[in-house]
Design a protein around this nucleic acid. Structure first.
Lengths: 342, 342
DNA sequence: CTGAAAGCGCTTACAG
DNA sequence: CTGAAAGCGCTTACAG
């Protein structure tokens, strides 16, 4: 019975309506779970859908209703565990809202970013969560507003005119510095890497300000390679500045991981000879030895926030731009120790 | 000029056609880069698109052309770095093919998997790459063929009737065992975790077979917790079986990472007191200390393969089902040492 | 609560 | 190479 109507998968709402002996409009109301339809009718239509193997055609619905139930997410990178956690958080929220997520990779470069943004527009997404690529031009906000497409920035921001879900990186740095100072450290170094963007600046400035607050030298900022397996080799750079740090704060856990390896190679014992603090507190921090003290930024929570902002923006496009800056939390484990009075 | 036509973003192909003084059909040909249109005409149309800020409406096109330029990817988990690398590989290939990727999370459970699969069908994806959830029912193949939707299995497989892009896990285990044997190890343990599926069975069987080939006890298979931070605490279980292993092969690098932490906590020196081999060879392996010897499965390459299979399947739906099993490669680093004759 | 009509923005034959 | 017409499968008012 049911199979014969189905050549080439073409069961349409009209077929369902006929089968259930109602009008197409009524069938449409049933699919969309409208309360206008009587229980008995609804049941009949639903039975018809089952029997015919009906599959809702979102594409057709979108064309008429101007809503695609699809959002776009563009990140600079897919393989970084931090972004993986971020995406995981987003996926959960997006799914709960009955939407679906198209993900795109900007490679952290403006040209590719422009291309994927265009592609997402063509696909008619209802909105976009964008972690702006390093070097994103200033006119992003005006472009986006021309598009009349709901957009929220995540993790990084290039304009105040667009919603932003991020983290108080500066406060996180402050927590880290404060903690190390409380342990007696003074020669504290900040090891950075990767592309430069708002989250980068906020961390560096947070570090400098905090150091100054404690009347400490704020300029021990050194740059390490991007890839974790190369950071280890560069750990020497930390000690080549004329002043030997007793503690180092890392741009993220990846840097911490690489540096930890480098220290190991040099026979330095973390948490004894040198103190180490990570940033982000991704899953590995707990599995490092000694366990890594790290400033937690809860990427999956940021993912939730970004989706929440986007959904509200979609519902009310004229809302004033909003910021959702979440707090960090220093997760103290075993990689720092009091400065031995030597 | 250009702004006024654009109230509510509604520049349509017809507007472009009028502006360029051609018919709608011709404009359509230009968007699709058909060679049928003369260079001069094409240029005029393209100029019109630019001036009006035209955005191609993929949704409308799909409705008529029955192609969405969208593929679905369903994975059991988003935050595992292994899947992150897999997705990264897929994204590159998908993007290069001019498509876009909807990603969905099955949570490694059949009910959610069924839901997301349904959702992807509703969104009219051109095909699906599925890493089947543990416990996926046997009728998957017949369901999928009812759907007439191109599908390829990745990493795991539940049927031979659907394309599959995977890895020769058994051969990988064999490499690992062989290497340890060559170092003189006999009491070799396999530490597994996570849900049970084809890739799990293949690894366990690969281990057992290889051990038997060398006339070694094949039943030192122990189970550790799923989360990396809990594995460390369970490292003792390795030594509670009456026989103390001198080497352990891990189900994946995550297990290796957790176990390494556990060994550290017990004062065991990896690569001296005990040998350790990981599986997958994700980025961290290089940053562990001692550096982790691991069986590389090249997840991003599998991602490429899966996309390639899917694109071919979409182009030729009647092709017989195919398998693309890629080889593993043992990446020897510093976590294993010869068994000291004691 | 239900029906008949129009239309979302494109592509597809089919004539010229 | 170009035009006019029909239609993809839905939803949206608008009447009943």
């Amino acid at each position: 019975m049911s199979r014969q109507d189905q050549k080439r998968n073409k069961v349409t709402l009209l077929d369902v309506a006929k089968h259930a002996d109602v009008s197409r409009a009524t069938a449409s109301l049933v699919v969309r779970k409208s309360p206008l339809v009587g229980a008995e009718t609804r049941e009949r239509v639903e039975a018809a859908m089952r029997e015919l193997g009906y599959v809702y055609n979102m594409g057709a619905a979108r064309l008429r209703a101007e809503r695609s139930h699809t959002i776009g997410v563009v990140v600079p990178n897919l393989t970084n565990p931090f972004f993986a956690e971020l995406l995981g958080g987003m996926e959960a929220s997006v799914d709960a809202a009955g939407l679906v997520m198209i993900i795109a990779n900007s490679g952290d470069g403006p040209p590719r970013q422009a291309a994927v943004l265009q592609r997402l527009r063509e696909h008619g997404v209802d909105g976009i969560i964008l972690c702006p690529a390093a070097g994103t031009p200033d006119d992003l906000a005006s472009k986006v507003s021309d598009w009349k497409l709901p957009v929220v920035q995540a993790l990084r921001h290039v304009t105040d005119d667009i919603d932003y879900a991020g983290v108080d990186y500066a406060a996180g740095m402050e927590e880290a510095v404060e903690y190390l100072v409380s342990l007696g450290h003074q020669a504290i170094c900040f090891a950075v890497h990767g592309p430069v963007h708002s989250a980068y600046h906020e961390r560096v400035q947070g570090f400098r300000e905090s150091m100054k607050r404690f009347s400490l030298k704020p300029d021990l900022v050194i740059r390490v390679p991007d890839r974790v397996d190369q950071i280890a080799k560069e750990a020497d750079a930390l000690f080549a500045q004329g002043r030997v740090p007793s503690a180092v704060i890392c741009f993220n856990d990846l840097v911490a991981h690489g540096l930890a390896a480098g220290f190991y190679d040099r026979g330095l014992r973390i948490g004894r000879d040198i103190s180490l603090i990570g940033f982000d507190d991704v899953a590995d921090a707990e599995a490092m030895r000694p366990r890594l003290t790290s400033v937690s930024t809860s990427p999956s929570e940021i993912g939730h926030n970004a989706v929440a902002l986007l959904l509200e923006r979609i519902a009310q496009p004229s809302l004033p731009p909003r910021c959702w800056i979440s707090a960090t939390k220093l997760h103290i484990r075993d990689s720092c120790s009091p400065l031995s009075s030597s």
